[in-house]
């Protein structure tokens, strides 16, 4: 019941946001949407490049400290430091990867110059390489633990198996909260897409169906996983 109420609340919030965005879009119909999207693509590409630089800096700092942490802090502080910094690195990598993917998508769809598309493509490939390289750092940070190699096909299962009960408790809490947030965010996204379609006349029906199917598949997968055998 609480979940339904929360979903309804987010739906109303989404509707208000959608209406506000639409109202602005109507008043600014002098703007060409393609031009706005182009600059969003360029901004995403720049953001990706900035996040790549941030990631490399974080990666190098983490490797320097882990080389001889005793120079900087005690054992407990180091364990907290490497754990949090590795998490920060993952966040930076995700930002750069998703931003680059958005940039590539926009620049291809808008049929901009080949050089721009190629540049975005190279940035995207670099972010993929960086994400794989960063995952591999975990084995260097925790040399005494039997952690899976980056790129292992059963990476998630092996990582979970290598975690102890306290770590699994933290992972479960984090995943459950992010799962709920994702459901609400996707639902809000559907509402925004409905308003966007109505106001701009650009049909987003495919995206709405796709998001709906993803939400159903995700719920089905969860229900199948927790079903009593």
């Amino acid at each position: 019941m609480k979940r339904i109420l929360r979903l309804l609340m987010y739906a109303i919030l989404g509707a208000i946001t959608g209406l506000s965005v639409s109202a602005i879009a109507v008043r600014n119909d002098g703007f060409r949407m393609d031009e706005i999207y182009f600059w969003i693509g360029i901004a995403a590409l720049l953001l990706s490049i900035i996040m790549i630089v941030v990631s490399i800096y974080m990666y190098r700092t983490l490797m320097t400290v882990s080389g001889d942490y005793t120079k900087y802090m005690d054992m407990d502080a180091y364990d907290i430091y490497r754990y949090n910094k590795f998490n920060d690195l993952q966040v930076a990598n995700t930002f750069s990867l998703i931003s680059a993917a958005i940039a590539v998508a926009i620049l291809i769809v808008l049929e901009t110059s080949l050089i721009l598309v190629a540049a975005a493509g190279i940035v995207y490939l670099f972010t993929v390489w960086l994400a794989i390289k960063s995952s591999g750092i975990m084995r260097k940070l925790y040399p005494d633990r039997d952690l899976p190699k980056a790129g292992d096909k059963d990476y998630a299962e092996k990582l979970l198996a290598a975690s102890d009960e306290g770590e699994r408790h933290i992972i479960l809490n984090g995943l459950y909260k992010s799962y709920n947030l994702m459901q609400v965010a996707l639902f809000t996204g559907i509402i925004l897409l409905i308003f966007y379609s109505i106001i701009t006349g650009e049909s987003q029906i495919f995206s709405i169906i796709l998001i709906g199917v993803i939400m159903i598949i995700s719920q089905l997968k969860y229900s199948l996983e927790i079903r009593e055998k």
């Binding site: 005690d74 054992m75 407990d76 975690s163």
Partner: peptide
């Protein structure tokens, strides 16, 4: 003992000791 040392003795992660 610090948390890391206790974690090693108890064969768990420092995070688990911290949570407890």
């Amino acid at each position: 003992l610090n948390q890391t040392e206790l974690a090693k003795l108890a064969k768990v992660s420092r995070q688990t000791i911290s949570l407890i």
